[in-house]
């Protein structure tokens, strides 16, 4: 099956492979007659050049045709000691290299909407202050990762709406083009239940099946066209 029809219906599709597969994926993308998908990376370093053994430069990724870089995933924060400062610096590094930072955000513990929203806003605000142009924030509460039940739609709607208001209130000083997607366990029907507050979804394991991706892209497209 192909997502061609669905994806071209106003939904942007991004594939973020491992570093080793990026070049092949961009080649494959460039073979297509239509721009069906964009290629992203799963991390980068915060400097364009320098002696940082083993790290990947955002400048280099841009040269390979990478359009997005995922930054600050909960796994990286937990297992590799990724700090908020690194997330800010990496986002700025992407931004200055014309790559759109795709920043993973979320509160640690479950709480009321305002408390969670304020905690997540602390992750968003410095990124807005240090980047220009397009940004994507992928929201997933940390407490919901791997939990038996995903975060409730009401909670997601509440926090994302709270963040959207805060972002809109910054428009005069931060004129970024900001999209907020939901980054948690996504399955069929999720995006519909979110009442159009999110600008899309960030898929993990569920998206490893092309048929699942097709379904989700169609759902996101249907919600967006309402």
């Amino acid at each position: 099956s192909t997502v061609a029809t669905a994806a071209l219906n106003h939904v942007e599709l991004v594939v973020m492979p491992d570093f080793l597969s990026i070049r092949e994926c961009t080649r494959l993308k460039n073979r297509l007659d239509e721009p069906l998908f964009n290629v992203g990376a799963q991390d980068c370093w915060q400097a364009d050049e320098g002696a940082f053994t083993g790290e990947v430069s955002p400048k280099h990724l841009a040269q390979l045709g990478v359009r997005y870089v995922e930054i600050g995933h909960a796994e990286r924060r937990k297992q590799f000691g990724e700090t908020n400062e690194w997330v800010i610096n990496k986002s700025a590094a992407c931004s200055r290299n014309s790559i759109i930072p795709w920043i993973c955000i979320g509160e640690i513990n479950k709480g009321d909407i305002e408390a969670c929203g304020d905690e997540v806003w602390e992750q968003i605000k410095p990124v807005l202050d240090n980047c220009t142009g397009q940004l994507v924030f992928a929201y997933e509460p940390v407490w919901a990762i791997g939990a038996p039940k995903p975060a409730e739609s009401d909670h997601i709607i509440g926090v994302v709406s709270y963040l959207r208001k805060k972002i809109d209130a910054e428009k005069e000083t931060n004129n970024n083009d900001v999209r907020i997607v939901y980054g948690g366990s996504a399955g069929p029907g999720l995006v519909e239940s979110l009442n159009g507050v999110v600008d899309g979804l960030f898929l993990g394991r569920f998206g490893h099946n092309p048929d699942n991706v097709k379904k989700v892209v169609e759902e996101v497209g249907a919600v967006a066209s309402k």
């Binding site: 099956s1 192909t2 997502v3 061609a4 106003h10 939904v11 942007e12 599709l13 991004v14 594939v15 973020m16 492979p17 491992d18 080793l20 597969s21 092949e24 994926c25 494959l28 993308k29 073979r31 297509l32 069906l36 998908f37 992203g40 799963q42 997005y68 995922e70 995933h73 795709w102 994507v136 992928a138 083009d177 900001v178 999209r179 997607v181 600008d199 899309g200 979804l201 960030f202 898929l203 993990g204 394991r205 998206g207 490893h208 092309p210 991706v213 989700v216 892209v217 996101v220 497209g221 919600v223 967006a224």
Partner: peptide
Amino acid sequence: TRQPVVAISLKMYFDPAKTLQFVSALAGI
């Protein structure tokens, strides 16, 4: 209006051939 976006982070593939197979299937190639 903001363009909706769906992204897939291919974290669980540790085989470049499998990754390419997935992307090819997605693209209908």
